[in-house]
């Protein structure tokens, strides 16, 4: 309680400056002007998570993107065994300070989370939801376009990476099948 009062009433500037810096450092907002970053700061949400707390779970509806302001977040996907129907969590990656995740929620209608995000340390996140992005676009279309262009670039890059990975897998599968044929 004392910490909350100290952080929010007696020392708000330092906190706000930190958030502004985090926003400025994030790739999605890199093309925004200082005035636009300050406007964004008033719109985004600051969320705190404890160790092992779920930020979101695979299969849930998602409406927000998160920027990691402090701490680490682990991403897991659920793997269901086709025979035993048992499911287990497979670790995918660990995100560190400055990374962002959940961006598809801003672009897709009725977005369903494709992975689980869990706090691996004490975590502070900056959340930007789809309604927030709509509000930005409504009040400052040029700012909305800048964010959406960056978002499009991120999604495009991720799509390209996925395409390369699929191509690599296809090649590996071809090599494997050739190997199997030559063995038999």
């Amino acid at each position: 309680m004392v910490n909350y009062l100290w952080d929010n009433i007696f020392n708000p500037d330092a906190k706000e400056k930190q958030h502004v810096k985090k926003l400025r450092d994030c790739f999605l907002f890199s093309s925004l002007t200082t005035k636009e970053i300050l406007f964004l700061k008033d719109i985004v949400h600051i969320r705190k998570f404890n160790i092992a707390e779920n930020i979101f779970k695979q299969g849930e509806m998602g409406v927000a993107l998160y920027i990691l302001a402090k701490g680490n977040v682990d991403i897991f996907v659920e793997d269901i065994d086709l025979i035993t129907k048992e499911s287990k969590e497979i670790f995918v990656t660990r995100l560190k300070q400055g990374d962002f995740f959940g961006e598809i929620a801003l672009a897709e209608k009725d977005n369903v989370r494709t992975a689980t995000a869990k706090a691996s340390t004490e975590v502070q996140l900056i959340g930007l939801s789809k309604p927030d992005l709509l509000e930005i676009t409504e009040r400052s279309p040029s700012m909305g376009v800048k964010i959406l262009l960056q978002l499009g670039e991120v999604l495009g890059k991720r799509l390209k990476q996925t395409g390369y990975k699929i191509e690599e897998l296809r090649k590996e599968m071809k090599t494997l099948s050739k190997h199997q044929k030559s063995e038999s």
Binding site: R47, E53, I55, G62, A64, S129, L134
Partner: peptide, 13 residues
């Protein structure tokens, strides 16, 4: 609470 954060944002919108 964190668990209902996105739900409440979506609902309000």
């Amino acid at each position: 609470p964190n668990r209902f954060f996105e739900l409440s944002i979506n609902l309000q919108h």
